[in-house]
Computed example of a mutant assay.
Amino acid sequence: MVDRKRIVLQPEYMKNFHCIGPACEDSCCIGWRIDLDKQTYLKYKKINNLELKPIFEKAVNRKHNQKSDESYGKIKMESDGRCPFLDEKMLCKIHRNLGEEYLSDTCALYPRYLRKVDGKFERSATMSCPEIARLGLLNPDGIAFEHIEEDVDARIKLHSNFDTEGHLYINKPQRYFWDIRIFSLSLLQNRNYNLGERLIILGIVYEKIEALYLEERLNDLPLMLETMNSIIESGSFKEEIEKVPTNTQIQMRLAKEMTDKKVLQGVTSQRYLDCLKETLIGIRYIEGEQLENVLAKYDENYKEYLSPYLDDLTLELIQSFSKVVLHNNQYIQGIIKLLKDNGYDSLAYMTILVKN
């Protein structure tokens, strides 16, 4: 039998990743829904293991409103958000008793994502995994990419398949995906600008792309990117960005509205709730407190506490925020609506929101 190989593009830190199990600060088996692919669901219904069978009968259910094989069934989580197969040592009972081959696609592949772009494989990982967040965010040299050769696993799940040459994208910006991607990555890795400045410039460029599309001038897109890259390299953007005012009041009000919206929906991640609680207490954003006092406390705490310890705090917040928010499309759409309803979806407001 001939060994099958594939080439995959991935961040360099992925080769050092492995699940740290009970040592992890935040279990991936707590706090969200676990979908079951059809093959795994049917296997679970045939299990006769004395320890697991009662749990399978109680917690494994069919998703009758779903017709896809990828989301055929689900595991009903316990009232505290824990997976019913999680043992006292924070390890999976299915993996312990039956082996990795009995894990669902969701459990076996997390936090990895495999995509195909123009016929080539790419792997990434979600920052909702603490170990991935640590490897990706705390590397002083930044994120680099590499091609690796690996055996073709029988279990292959593509999360997306994108063909830039497809007929759907003939007259759309997706046709210039590679130009846009290379420009964006180069900008985001440019440490001559701080992160807020990089995001502002990226917003300016994306607005220009949208304008070219609306004006049916997409052929000018590569030249526009080349021009913008020259301006970035010259440092000319620095002076313009410095003219943008910092408005902590707008930032604070919108952040509080987004926080309230999420809390009303219910959050099961204790790690995220701890971040939220400590933040609100730290800046005295409590009921009855005047906004002026909150802003003053925020500025004071930012200078005294946040700046010196930004790495560790940022790691915890990004990871917990990713777990609670980025895996919840309903919440993301709600935030977009909130921005539009408040008139904050313009480039001018976005610039104010991300500055500092």
Rank of each mutant, 00 (worst) to 15 (best):
I94L: 03
V2F: 07
S230W: 08
S234L: 05
D312F: 04
C275Q: 13
L98N: 01
I201H: 00
F162T: 08
I283W: 04
N194Q: 07
P140E: 06
E287F: 04
I182R: 15
M350S: 14
G235C: 02
K93W: 06
G119T: 02
Q10M: 11
N247G: 07
L306F: 14
L221A: 06
L137N: 04
D3T: 13
A59D: 08
I170T: 14
A125Y: 01
E242T: 05
I94E: 03
I201F: 03
E215W: 10
D37A: 15
L218R: 01
D312S: 11
L315M: 01
K93E: 09
L315V: 09
T106D: 13
L135S: 05
I281R: 11
Q265S: 15
S346Y: 08
R112H: 15
F183Q: 01
M14K: 06
K58C: 04
L36A: 11
T314L: 02
A255M: 02
I94P: 05
V2Y: 00
M350E: 14
K238S: 06
F321H: 06
M224G: 02
V205W: 00
M252V: 06
G334R: 05
D153R: 15
E215S: 14
L50Y: 15
E278P: 07
R96V: 12
P245I: 01
K256G: 00
E12S: 12
S320K: 00
E304C: 03
R112I: 09
H167D: 14
F321Y: 10
K340I: 09
K58P: 05
L109I: 14
I204K: 09
M228C: 05
S79N: 13
D141A: 03
I47D: 02
D153I: 13
I94N: 06
G282H: 06
S184T: 13
K337R: 15
E122L: 13
E226C: 12
T351A: 13
N342M: 14
R134P: 01
P130Y: 02
E88D: 12
F162M: 14
I47M: 06
L103P: 00
N16V: 10
Y72S: 11
R82W: 04
N328E: 09
N356L: 09
V263W: 00
V324P: 00
D87H: 00
I335L: 12
E239N: 05
W32Q: 08
L339F: 14
L273I: 07
Q174W: 15
N97K: 15
V244A: 01
R284C: 09
T268Q: 11
K58A: 13
N194L: 05
E197N: 08
N247K: 06
E100G: 08
S307C: 10
P245E: 03
E131V: 03
L214K: 10
G136A: 13
D69C: 03
Q39W: 07
R82C: 07
I7P: 04
L338F: 08
T259M: 04
E233P: 03
L339C: 09
G282Y: 05
C107H: 08
L306S: 01
L52P: 04
L114F: 12
S104H: 06
D312R: 05
